[in-house]
């Protein structure tokens, strides 16, 4: 894979991010409600005062002027101020982003570690007992929405069995290994819920992709070399089968983030997903804008990773 090709891909991210920010900003600006809409309804605040405040904060300027302001301060590292949390938006996000990244990352990792071998085994032995069990479980996992599996897990493991805490606490007052242990304990269910959903669809993708690849000519060529079935599968089938899977997984990233938002809300995980929901309910526009933008950045970043991975898996992409 050539360095030049990767560089070009990275440079393409810039216009993508610009476009996304314009779009997000416009949509949010058009949406009803802003930090001062409550002021307008508050009888204690005279309308002239409200109008003066609006003018002072530039809320009545045309959208593109406001976008310009937003963009320049954004570039300077000033992400605005949350009227609700009384805090700088960037501090707020930086506080909460790691939790989200850890939960999503752990869930993805778990999904990949389980789904890859299961999908491959199911694909090379289609319609075997193993395949049928894997398929059924994947179908169930795929059809159940995260809010349902989330509540189900809480019901079983927190309420019935009382093994795991069902509210995620950011303020664990313990030290050393106990601190980590508590964090792991409270992350298990959110990670499971997200991982199950991801893993289930991944199993199906991997299986069908493997099923397509095993009948291709070059797999028969590989067998004819006498290299052994295990190596035929791991070397010649899996890598090719992953090429379409990478694309599918990355196309699904927005759905994953959506699932993460719901999951964070259910388990009260203090990540940027639950932050987004509370900010939306409170009309905290700067936070909504910033979190959506961060989510978009994550999606774009995932796409970049996918492109690089894709090119690494398939030399036809970057060698022409």
């Amino acid at each position: 894979m050539s360095r030049q090709w990767i560089l070009r891909r990275i440079l393409l991210v810039i216009p993508a991010m610009l476009g996304i920010s314009v779009l997000l900003y416009t949509v949010l600006a058009l949406a009803p409600g802003d930090p001062f809409s409550e002021l307008a309804q508050n009888p204690a605040v005279p309308p002239e005062v409200a109008a003066a405040l609006r003018a002072k904060f530039g809320l009545d300027d045309p959208v593109w002027v406001r976008y310009g302001h937003w963009f320049t301060s954004m570039m300077r590292g000033d992400w605005g101020f949350s009227f609700v949390s009384r805090m700088d938006v960037d501090t707020l996000i930086l506080q909460r982003l790691p939790t989200t990244l850890i939960v999503i990352g752990a869930a993805q990792l778990m999904a990949i570690l389980v789904a890859l071998p299961v999908g491959v085994l199911a694909g090379i032995r289609p319609y075997s007992v193993f395949d049928q069990i894997a398929n059924t479980l994947a179908f169930i996992g795929f059809s159940l929405p995260t809010f349902f599996t989330g509540l189900l897990l809480i019901l079983v493991f927190s309420i019935q069995l009382d093994w795991l805490p069902f509210v995620y606490r950011a303020d664990i007052n313990a030290t050393g290994w106990k601190f980590y242990w508590e964090h792991i304990r409270q992350s298990i269910m959110p990670v499971m819920v997200l991982g199950l959903f991801q893993g289930a669809s991944l199993v199906r993708y991997v299986r069908s992709s493997v099923l397509d690849v095993v009948k291709l000519d070059y797999v028969i060529t590989a067998r004819s070399k006498g290299i052994g079935e295990r190596k035929v599968v791991t070397k010649h089938v899996v890598r090719n089968a992953l090429i379409p899977v990478v694309t599918l997984v990355m196309l699904q990233m927005p759905v994953v983030f959506g699932g993460a938002i719901v999951t964070e809300q259910i388990f009260r995980v203090p990540g940027i997903g639950s932050l987004l929901i509370s900010a939306m309910l409170a009309n905290d526009t700067p936070v909504v804008m910033a979190v959506t933008f961060v989510f978009s950045c994550l999606v774009v970043l995932c796409n970049l990773i996918a492109d690089v991975l894709y090119a690494w898996l398939d030399p036809r992409i970057s060698y022409r």
Binding site: T221, K225, G226
Partner: peptide, 24 residues
């Protein structure tokens, strides 16, 4: 046991050269 014979004693080539080699 077949793997000791494949390629070493009997080799095979196929009709479709475009798809018989692994693209990656």
């Amino acid at each position: 046991e077949m793997n000791k014979i494949r390629a070493r004693e009997i080799a095979i080539i196929f009709q479709e050269p475009m798809t018989s080699l692994n693209p990656v």
